[in-house]
Design a protein around this nucleic acid. Sequence first.
DNA 1: CCCTGATTCGC
DNA 2: GCGAATCAGG
Length: 180
Amino acid sequence: MSWTEERVDLLRKLWSDGLSASQVAAELGPGITRNAVIGKIHRLGLAERAKTAAAQRPRAAKGTARQPATAPVVAAPRAGGHAVHGNVALAFAPQAMVVARVAPEAEEVVIPMSERVTLMELRESMCRWPMGDPTTPDFRFCGAKSPIGAGPYCAHHARVAYQPAQDRRRARDLKAPRFA
DNA sequence: CCCTGATTCGC
DNA sequence: GCGAATCAGG
């Protein structure tokens, strides 16, 4: 990979938009690391943006709308075990993509695009609820932190996935969802 | 432990 | 010029 004009332009744009170095790197695709982005930014003299920008990423939207969704059947990433050091996303990317193919239309919550994550940004600790059309570059995952142990979804999507309206009472007593 | 940008320095 | 390794910090 090299810093083509297009890459640099995109780098400038995303960086000035307030994306973090790792986010920009993810956006530029595999082959461009966070370090590469930071290094380039300094060489370009782009360091220090206006203010602290959107440094910290506020995760997860406050649970609002909810619908009895058809929960996508997802294979939870193997806990521990074969995780790849560094880029954990790669360890379960295959499963995540399968989900996307099975339930491409599941869109119960609106998470701003800026808060969603790409496959490369997805971490094992993030909600992998698919959002958007997997056949387009806009495809993202919810990305919110998943507080349900090593579960695959954030609090809201776990509710959506495991609490069908008709079964709410019983599900309420469920401490932690079971993953096949 | 998750993440952030900054810096160094061999290539 | 490039970016991995490392550092300092939240």
